[in-house]
Simulated scan of single mutants.
Amino acid sequence: MARRQALLLAVVAVAATVCLAPLASATYWMVGDEGGWRAKFNQTGWADGKTFMVGDNLLFMYQQGAHTVIQVGKDDFVSCNLQGKQLGSWTSGNDIVHLDKPGKVWFFCSVPGHCDNGMKLVVDVQDAAPAPVVSPAPAPQW
């Protein structure tokens, strides 16, 4: 009986490690670091050299009412099209954006003139590392 409980405990521990490891490794990125989300943001190169992974979160910090965070497609991002399709919108000043799939994600501030003055960000989200392959334990010989 004790061996069966120990084996069950080992299987549960391995399953928990495999399932929960991606959650434990998520990174919270404060966009703009101590300067936050601000005018002329794109001139800082903030995203350069950073690796964003599926499961990470972007924290946009700014004065509520002074800015916004809008997620758009590439064409609207490039042209700062304020009338384009919004894929997401945040206005609290303490916004958390969860990166839930790989690929490029484009953001800008929708206050007129802010995007044109560089308040925009693109991040390239990488697929999370695949879960480790765990070989099944040999069946116990009872």
Rank of each mutant, 00 (worst) to 15 (best):
Y28S: 08
Y28F: 14
W29G: 04
W29E: 03
W29T: 10
W29C: 00
M30W: 02
M30N: 13
V31E: 07
G32D: 03
E34D: 07
E34P: 09
E34Y: 14
G35N: 14
G36T: 07
G36Q: 07
W37C: 05
W37D: 09
W37Y: 12
K40S: 08
K40T: 01
F41L: 03
Q43K: 10
T44W: 01
G45C: 07
G45A: 03
G45I: 03
A47P: 04
A47Y: 07
A47K: 05
G49R: 01
K50F: 11
T51F: 08
F52D: 04
F52R: 08
M53A: 02
M53P: 05
V54S: 10
V54M: 12
V54Y: 11
G55E: 05
G55Y: 15
D56Y: 09
N57H: 13
L58C: 03
L59Q: 02
L59V: 01
L59A: 00
L59R: 07
F60Y: 11
M61E: 12
M61D: 05
Q63E: 11
Q63S: 11
Q64K: 15
Q64M: 09
Q64N: 14
Q64I: 00
A66G: 00
H67R: 01
T68A: 02
T68W: 11
V69L: 02
V69N: 07
V69K: 07
V69Q: 06
V69S: 05
I70S: 15
I70Y: 15
I70T: 15
I70M: 15
I70D: 02
Q71L: 03
Q71M: 13
Q71T: 01
V72H: 14
G73N: 12
D76G: 10
F77N: 07
F77H: 09
F77D: 05
V78P: 06
V78W: 12
S79Y: 01
S79G: 00
S79M: 08
S79V: 05
C80Y: 09
N81C: 00
N81I: 00
L82D: 05
Q83S: 11
Q83W: 10
Q83L: 13
G84I: 05
K85E: 04
K85F: 04
K85Y: 13
Q86A: 07
Q86F: 12
L87W: 14
S89A: 09
S89C: 06
W90S: 05
T91I: 09
T91R: 07
S92W: 09
S92M: 11
G93L: 03
N94Q: 14
N94M: 07
D95F: 12
D95H: 09
I96N: 13
I96D: 07
V97Y: 11
V97I: 11
V97F: 06
L99T: 04
D100N: 15
D100Y: 13
G103C: 09
G103I: 03
K104V: 04
V105A: 05
V105S: 09
V105Q: 13
W106I: 09
F107E: 00
F108D: 02
C109Q: 03
S110K: 08
S110N: 14
S110P: 00
S110V: 01
